[in-house]
Design a protein around this nucleic acid. Structure first.
Lengths: 248, 248
DNA sequence: CAGCGTGATTGACGCACGTCATGGCGCCAA
DNA sequence: TTGGCGCCATGACGTGCGTCAATCACGCTG
């Protein structure tokens, strides 16, 4: 019943997409929960969180137009969020890795204005929003945590604006790669070697570039011995060189 | 004592920068307060809000590095927020008009990571954040309102990413002008004629363009009889034509 | 195994916008 | 008044990236 097609084998015997795991036992809790929560408070939060079966690649978690009723935390796999302009042009608004929260742009309205899609098999915690609001009143540190999460999302988006508005294709891609590398490190994965969960087209869309340009920059980075690229497998050969490009 | 240098004369006898006005009497309350608040709840909010003297043009409301302790509502005038990249390049992150809230990107940290500057004489309500958090626990509709405000900020930033990443200089400037026009209409000002509070350089910075390009696009729009431009005074001659360009 | 479709790469070419430089206008101070 | 400065406009020129098109590698299915 557990899909594991695109799933790397893990050393312990638990499947990374197991969905019957509570917050207290979740390997990601340090990333998505406020540190200040007491044990019994975590349990309270735990009780409102819903965990369905894992999503398969290309399955939607929600679609633009769906009624908004929850925000989501990634437990495994990877998610992309995207909006459609009224001319039907897709705009990728974010990539979300385990421990990260998505769907906060839906809070402003009764219906989602963007969509979320599993880029690979992914387990997701659903956090019903009205119940989160209620619980936030009882647990001030939870309220604060969510304000901070949303604020961080704003900062990220502003950084993306600056990146796209002021930087070259090389700098944009370098910055994305460094971002993924850093986020991997936070999850105790390799920051040098990883697999990109998204296509070249998604990368280009996200960074305001065409597929062709993304492809060319990857080739250029290989020639400059910054990277080793094998399809979606990335090995960073010169981390500091890449960081320099990324202005980080 | 009341500065009114750049201030247009208003028909009623109150100066738009008067700062001794409580929320209940504020002309902007429909824009920045939750509609659902009871009268006595507005008064509770009112008591925590601080209103200092108006800021003069080019005065900072806060600077990157300052301790974060409040978010702000514009009561009159106009504010720009901006960040510096570590190479000292400025990135304008937003323009805020009366009734709009700014400073929410500071919530994630103990210190501001961006700065806010008065583009013209401006009155501002300071909302101490820890007291807002406390009050949000007592007033659930206030909590919800702030979640929604932050969500809207996220959506705006995402739209800006799409605008800069996918649209031409003409489309970007048209979109900004339509945005300001629409926001003016919400404040019962003319949506056809208004004064831009920011410089060409700020516009270009915000939209990911150079000053020269902004200037050329303004000239082009005039030749196409979309606008009449006299320095910062803008008259929209063909609103629907501009909207078409702006994809709105 | 052939045949197809999807994603990625690479090349040739053109254009929108950046860069650099010049000049005008309004404002302020001396 | 004169000079200096900030802001804006406009022209000439160069280039980074988009566009169009061809090819390749692959996984899937019949």
């Amino acid at each position: 019943m557990e899909p594991r097609k695109t799933v790397p084998v893990v050393t312990d015997n638990s499947c990374p997409h197991r969905h019957n795991v509570n917050c207290g036992d979740c390997r990601m809790k340090a990333l998505c929960l406020p540190l200040a929560l007491e044990l019994d408070e975590v349990e309270q939060l735990d009780r409102i969180i819903q965990r369905g079966r894992p999503y398969q690649r290309d399955e939607h978690i929600y679609r633009a137009g769906d009624a908004f009723h929850a925000v989501y935390a990634v437990r495994s796999g990877a998610i992309k969020t995207f909006a459609m302009t009224d001319q039907g042009v897709e705009q990728v608004t974010g990539f979300y890795l385990p421990g990260e929260i998505f769907g906060m742009d839906g809070i402003a309205h009764t219906h989602h204005i963007s969509s979320a899609l599993a880029l690979e098999t992914a387990a997701v915690c659903e956090i019903p929003f009205t119940r989160l609001e209620d619980l936030s009143i009882a647990l001030p540190s939870l309220q604060r945590h969510f304000f901070q999460l949303m604020s961080r999302e704003i900062i990220n988006d502003q950084r993306l604006v600056a990146l796209i508005g002021k930087n070259s294709a090389d700098e944009r891609l370098a910055t994305l790669l460094i971002s993924i590398s850093t986020r991997n490190a936070k999850r105790n994965l390799s920051e040098q070697r990883f697999r990109l969960p998204m296509s070249r087209a998604d990368i280009g869309n996200y960074l305001g570039l065409t597929v062709e340009t993304v492809s060319r920059v990857f080739s250029r980075f290989q020639k400059q011995r910054l990277l080793k690229v094998d399809k979606k497998e990335i090995e960073i050969l010169d981390l500091s060189g890449l960081q320099e490009l990324a202005n980080v």
